[in-house]
Amino acid sequence: MSRTLKNNPRFGLMVASSLLLHLTIYALIYQYNKLQRANYSQEQTYYVDLVNLPVARPRSGASASEKASPPASSTARQVVTLPDKSPKKIATPLATKKPPKVKPASETGEELSKQMAKLQKRVEEKHTSSALDTIRNKAGSGRTGMPGGKGDQAGSDYASYVKSRLEDAFYSPMVYKGKKPEVKLLLRISRYGKIDFRIEQSSRDILFDAAVRRAIDMARENLKAPPDGEDFEHPFVFRPEGVKKK
């Protein structure tokens, strides 16, 4: 068996191409994880506790700072990146453009607000772009980076439209049984816009299943019929927020 494999020149090729494919997938997952983590640490900033800094106590010092480190480091990152640019720009107008007597306040104020607006814009841009990336990643996750997918070209745009309608309506319950509940179902939308679905795999969690049903019920109200005049049929998988496939 193994000899035939080894002697088969196509085997090497097969393995190599498979390897290439998997490396790409690994890289994508890695990238995706990194993005997720970056987003997460930004949110963490809220929890930084400046009041309860470690108190001078035997042993507590080291450990307390250790403890505080995860949130602290994230603020540090924040604090560093923002002023990194702003002080330079703010400092120069203040130092060089000192003379103006009438407008100093308003001008520097304008400058400042412009700078701030720019900065804010940049931050926002960064934010939206990263959010977009996340969405893109999510959207393409099934097909790993090939938007539109293959084969069902006609349906794929409509599928993402349906997906976004469903996501607007889909909230997971406050508690769910397992760690990663998921519901797989086949959604059918007739050419007249009538929605029908068949659950292929339940989450075995009444609350989560109900949330999925409810989402489809809600989406029903403002879902447009398929544009090509044909029945649409597509499989969807519903997952709670923050549960990643691994």
Partner: peptide, 20 residues
């Protein structure tokens, strides 16, 4: 050679994914 190369690359890939 090919197999050896594969081994190395594979571990590389494994490490990358493992790291996170």
């Amino acid at each position: 050679k090919m197999a050896k190369l594969l081994l190395v690359v594979c571990f590389g890939a494994f490490l990358i994914s493992g790291c996170s």
